[in-house]
Design a protein around this nucleic acid. Structure first.
Lengths: 344, 344
DNA sequence: ACTCTATTTGTAAGCGCTTACATCAATAAT
DNA sequence: ATTATTGATGTAAGCGCTTACAAATAGAGT
């Protein structure tokens, strides 16, 4: 019976409503330009045909996609989830759609995904951390795609960022640790290569040590990927050391959770025998026992502000300002004074 | 100084290489059709210009996007993360890109996102659970976009699915609970409205009770959203009951983690005074203490198989087969026999 | 030498939409 | 009544790519 019914186009709607495609397009994009009566007729045709605009065609014609891309290092844990959720919600309110990919902490994958997102017509990009090859930034410039860095704050960087100072935040925690009396400090960090956040966190600990007249080089440091069992493994290694560190500062809550698990397995009491700290204050931090002393990062606030700034940039209302978010220490039960018997 | 340097197009590449746009296109899409020498010249032009194909144009011309869309209920926790990660990895291997949105468990948002993804030219869609309005499926059919349901398995459904029987899986756990001697069973379920997985899990518990000659209506049931503190709140309510349930079966590990937290706050010992069970076996389950007795869902396997099946459907190599994944009980420490003093 | 086939490349017609510009009608200003 | 102004709609030119088809070239078969 004639041709297969397939997805209706603008043209079909125009015919059904007895107007030109231009009018239909206007009804959809700037309704105020169309007189009420016509608009109703058109909208009705849209409804009854079940018309959905073809996005690719729209992007191509308008050179605008109302899409924002975000590339995060991983979806595997909750570190980025909460901030991103808020980012998305905020974008949606402004009429943008969020496209997310994850790079698995691999710069090459990230580069490819940036190209993909740009090729897809993303109006703007959210990236995590500053550190990446210069040619990527050039590429973005050439394609005139504004980008915003999040989860990091660096007023000196050429690129705008909304985030916090990883160094200061971790430094504050480290000072608290030192003030509690710890001298033998160990750290389980995420891989620092290509990850300025991880670098700055280590830096923060080192600086705090120096400021307290401790030898920053004496920091026992293990670098590993951000996985629970890697945290556990690193913790085991640290506990095998003599003398044992009295505190293990972890690069994030995930690693700290792994450390805590391993402590339980090893029969080492936290915080009586060793203290453990985290970073991020994701839900996990409160769930583990003992609950983690950690740095609270206001992820939602960051997501919201990033969305606002990035849309402003996309719409040409801002050339990109950096925004600093305040973190705050949250003391729970995984940090205590070192045990006198082992600490001296 | 001439016009601003902007993103190069196929045409620019063609000129630079001294060939037609068709040849360039072929170099990119079916290199075997182009003779070595020409290809090298073209590829060099591509390189030196830093050309990236415009995706929208390509989609429009080819009516094919090599993009798969997935709409998951939430990114807020790890329930879907792992399976999705594998899904994405597998897709990438086959040359597809994954686009993810989250619907916040809201059917209206989901509907909108399905339209968005289809409008964006997704070649196929991954959806979670079977239950949604018929018109959505019609819409997908009209646009000829194959869809696959995951995290659920129903051989009777008209739509193909790859997943597991939520009912049987939870039923098995419930039988174990009952076999351990529990009679006063409570359950904290996710909202069952529009969520067949939640429904089936409740159903599984009820069926197991009936089979053991317990009154299925006696199941104390609290429905709540899948958030840690909601789990905690529900648990508190349950503990206020007299007589107290001896076991609290949770709709997933997130709720169970909340329950465990609250138990600690209330000074109720798990599993000595109350047992708690989870579902999914996400990382969380092993981290909390006591570690959760739960149902292990092979998320990666599911993600992988879903990717394979969906790409086959997209490429017309399959009309959509349902695939059943096996779950398995994992006994850890949150389930024990009920305390004699309180259980009878 | 001549046709036939296979291989490589070019030509050009869209894909479905937006938007600058043209057109037309209706109202206001003279 | 005539012209200017405003507002609503139509016309048609692309946006950057793919691909059916045509053309050109080269080798094989006779």
């Amino acid at each position: 019976m004639g041709k297969t019914r397939s997805a209706p186009t603008l043209n079909d709607v125009a015919k059904a409503a007895g107007v030109s495609t231009a009018t239909v397009s206007r009804c959809l994009n700037s309704p105020e330009q169309v007189i009420e009566q016509t608009r109703r007729r058109v909208m009705q045709a849209v409804e009854s045909l079940g018309y959905t605009p073809n996005f690719a065609a729209r992007v191509m014609a308008a050179n605008r996609s109302f899409t924002i891309g975000a590339i995060i290092p991983t979806m595997d844990n909750a570190i980025f989830a909460r901030g991103l959720q808020e980012f998305q919600d905020q974008l949606r309110e402004s009429g943008y759609t969020l496209l997310v990919s994850s790079s698995a902490y691999d710069p090459e994958v990230e580069r490819e995904q940036i190209r993909t997102l740009v090729a897809r017509g993303a109006d703007g990009l959210l990236l995590i951390g500053h550190e990446r090859d210069a040619d990527i930034y050039e590429y973005l410039e050439r394609h005139q795609v504004p980008s915003l860095v999040a989860w990091s704050y660096d007023p000196d960087a050429k690129r705008p960022s909304v985030g916090f100072s990883n160094k200061d935040a971790m430094g504050e925690l480290a000072r608290t640790v030192i003030a509690a009396g710890h001298r033998r400090i160990a750290m389980i960090s995420g891989k620092t290569k290509g990850n300025d956040r991880a670098q700055n966190r280590v830096e923060g600990v080192r600086q705090a040590m120096s400021q307290s007249n401790l030898d920053a080089d004496a920091l026992t440091l293990i670098e590993t990927t951000y996985e629970i069992d890697k945290g556990a493994e690193a913790f085991r290694q640290l506990m095998a050391l003599t003398p044992r560190p009295t505190v293990v500062m972890c690069g994030n809550d995930v690693l700290a959770a792994g450390a805590l698990c391993e402590a339980r397995r090893l029969g080492i009491k936290v915080p009586e025998q060793v203290s453990v700290t985290g970073f991020d204050d994701i839900e996990l931090a409160e769930i583990v026992s003992p609950a983690l002393t950690t740095v609270h990062v206001p992820h939602r606030e960051m997501g919201r502000k990033a969305a606002r700034e990035l849309t402003a940039m996309v719409e040409g209302k801002s050339e990109g300002h950096s925004i600093c978010i305040n973190t705050r220490l949250v003391s729970r039960h995984s940090l205590a004074e070192p045990d006198c018997h082992t600490s001296q």
